[in-house]
């Protein structure tokens, strides 16, 4: 119980500091407040993008380089649903998630399963090949042009106390937080989630208590892919995307994971928001052209200087 209280007080303290900082910004420098808010809203999406990757990496110890391309696939699918059938991207998420889940399950079943026990390089190489295959498929199906979704309400704003917030960004952020909470519930409360956790902790012991460990791998990979699709279809509303943007996405997701250090979902959310703020403030200070380089640099610096991340323990 004590630990719970400590955690509660800690998070309350953080929340109060953040609110105070935002209020100060509101009165001192409104421009920066907008930049920071933009970072916070994007941060939720970053956390969602990182979630699937963190799940696969945590359970299977496989670095899925194709995660970013799966996100792009989700974006293209919602683009398709919108232009062909006029389904709103926030609704077609319900269709995109199962499709990506099946795809991820199949990829693990047919490809990753064969190399999961070999040396550390081989899964990465298979994932890299998968990335190339997906990118070329996107180019065949949707051409290399950058695409973006323009919804009827893309320009709509929420106005709170004189602050204007883009409606689509706000909804995307809320949905991604909902997605994060859903996965937390699945992982901690359901039998399958607990089995996956058991496999990630000790493969042998999980086998001994009768868990089908291979199937758990397949499920974990499928869930990871499903969340990639989820994040991708939310991203399609906000950013323009093209077949090759997968690499930038996956590096951003990795930057979030490395920043968070531990696999805890609250850590991922905070790290996502921190990365979003660093990126948008950095882009404002040194120029928008460097925006992608900032997340790469954050990733590299954290990895080299503080490899245990913000919330991890040195071990």
């Amino acid at each position: 119980m004590d630990i719970l209280w400590q955690r509660l007080i800690k998070s309350l303290l953080i929340a109060v500091t953040v609110v105070v900082a935002l209020v100060i910004l509101y009165f001192v420098a409104l421009d920066y407040l907008y930049v920071v808010l933009g970072g916070v809203l994007v941060g939720g999406l970053y956390a969602l993008a990182a979630l699937g990757l963190a799940l696969v990496f945590g359970v299977m110890k496989i670095l899925n380089l194709a995660h970013g391309s799966m996100m792009v696939l989700g974006a293209y699918l919602s683009f398709w649903f919108f232009t062909l059938y006029g389904i709103d991207p926030f609704i077609s998420v319900v269709l995109v998630i199962p499709i990506l889940f099946l795809l991820g399950f199949a990829i693990e079943y047919f490809l990753m399963d064969k190399v999961a026990t070999l040396t550390a390089h081989q899964p990465v190489l298979v994932a890299f090949g998968l990335m190339v295959v997906l990118e070329s498929l996107f180019m065949l199906l949707w051409t290399a042009d950058p695409r973006g979704l323009v919804l009827p309400y893309s320009g709509a704003r929420l106005t709170v106390g004189g602050l204007h917030i883009s409606l689509t960004r706000f909804v995307a952020c809320v949905l991604s937080v909902v997605g994060l909470v859903c996965l937390a519930i699945i992982m901690n409360r359901t039998l399958i989630g607990r089995a996956i956790q058991a496999v990630s902790q000790d493969f042998k012991a999980a086998c001994f208590v009768g868990i089908n460990a291979r199937r758990m791998y397949q499920l974990a990979f499928g869930i990871g892919a499903a969340f990639a699709g989820f994040a991708g279809s939310l991203i399609s509303v906000i950013y323009a995307f093209e077949p090759t943007s997968g690499l930038a996405f996956v590096i951003k997701a990795l930057a979030v994971i490395v920043l968070a250090g531990s696999g805890r979902i609250s850590g991922l959310i905070i790290a996502g928001v921190v990365l979003g703020i660093i990126e948008s403030v950095g882009a404002m200070i040194i120029g928008g052209g460097f925006k992608d380089a900032i997340s790469f640099a954050v990733f590299l610096l954290v990895l080299l200087l503080k490899p245990e991340g913000l919330f991890g323990r040195r071990g």
Binding site: V124, L247, A248, G289, D292, A293, F296, A297, F299, L300
Partner: peptide, 18 residues
């Protein structure tokens, strides 16, 4: 291992963007 792959990959991407 995989972190080395990513570290070097992000380095070359940083160079490209710079």
């Amino acid at each position: 291992g995989s972190y080395f792959v990513l570290g070097t990959m992000s380095l070359s991407e940083i160079l490209r963007i710079v």
